[in-house]
Amino acid sequence: MNLRSQPDQALPVIAQGLGKKYRRGWALRETSLVVPRNRIVALVGPNGAGKSTLMGLITGLLRPTTGGLTVFGDRPAGKGLHPAVSYLAQQKPLYQQFTVTETLRLGARTNPTWNQDYAEHLVEQAAVPMGAKVGTLSGGQRTRVALALALGKRPSLLLLDEPLADLDPLARETVLRTLVTEARTQGITVVLSSHVLAELEGVCDHLVLLHNGRVLLAGDVNRLSADGTPLGELALNHMRRAAQEEAA
C-alpha cells in the first residue's frame, strides 16, 4: 500500500468567521479554526453545539451564512463532495439490500479516485463476508463496510459523524484501531465527532471543542493538556464552566 502523494500543500480546513443561521437561530457563529494536516481531530461538544453543522459546511452540504471556508484551498461548492474528502454520516447510510460486493461497486462507480484492492482489503480485514447483504450484518460490521466505502476513494480528509455510536465496546475498539492505523499509514487527516472522550484519549492528537456554535477550545492535545489532565476531564470542565456562565 503506497502512500499517495499530497495533491497540494494547502491545509485541510481553514475556516474564518464562519457562521450558519437557521430559522430557529444561529447554529454556528464567528467560527475560525484551522485543521492541521495528518492529525486525528476530536470534534466534541454538547448536542446543538454545531458539530454536525460544521461537518455539513466542510462537506459542502450546507452553505455558510457568514464567513468563508476552504478545504485544501478550494471553496466547497454545491457540485458534490471535494474529491479528496470523504464523509461518513451518523446513520451510516448503506443500501440494506445490497451485498457488500455491490456496495463496493457502488463506491467504484461514483468515485473517480477509487481503489478497489484497498477497499476489499479493509473488508477482509474486518472478517465481513463479501456476499452477505448489508442488512444482515451486525452494527460493527456495517460500520466497517461504511468505513471501507469512505476510505476506498483514497481521501486526504475523512469526516466521521459519531462513527462509534451504537457499537459495543469490542467493535468500538476494533473500528478505532483500524481508523488510526489507516490514517497514519495513508497520511489521512481525520475529523471525528464523538461523545465518548475516554476512548479518544489515546487516539486523537488535536481537539476542537464547540459550545453553542462557538469554538471553546482548539489545539493540539499535547499542548492543551501539557499538565497531564486527561482529555476527557479537560473538555468536561470547560463544558461545565460554559454551561454555568450561560445559566448566569
Partner: peptide, 10 residues
C-alpha cells in the same frame, strides 16, 4: 446514555 454528550451523561 447513548445519545448524550459528556455533560448530559454526567
Amino acid at each position: 446514555l447513548s445519545d448524550l454528550d459528556p455533560l448530559a451523561r454526567d
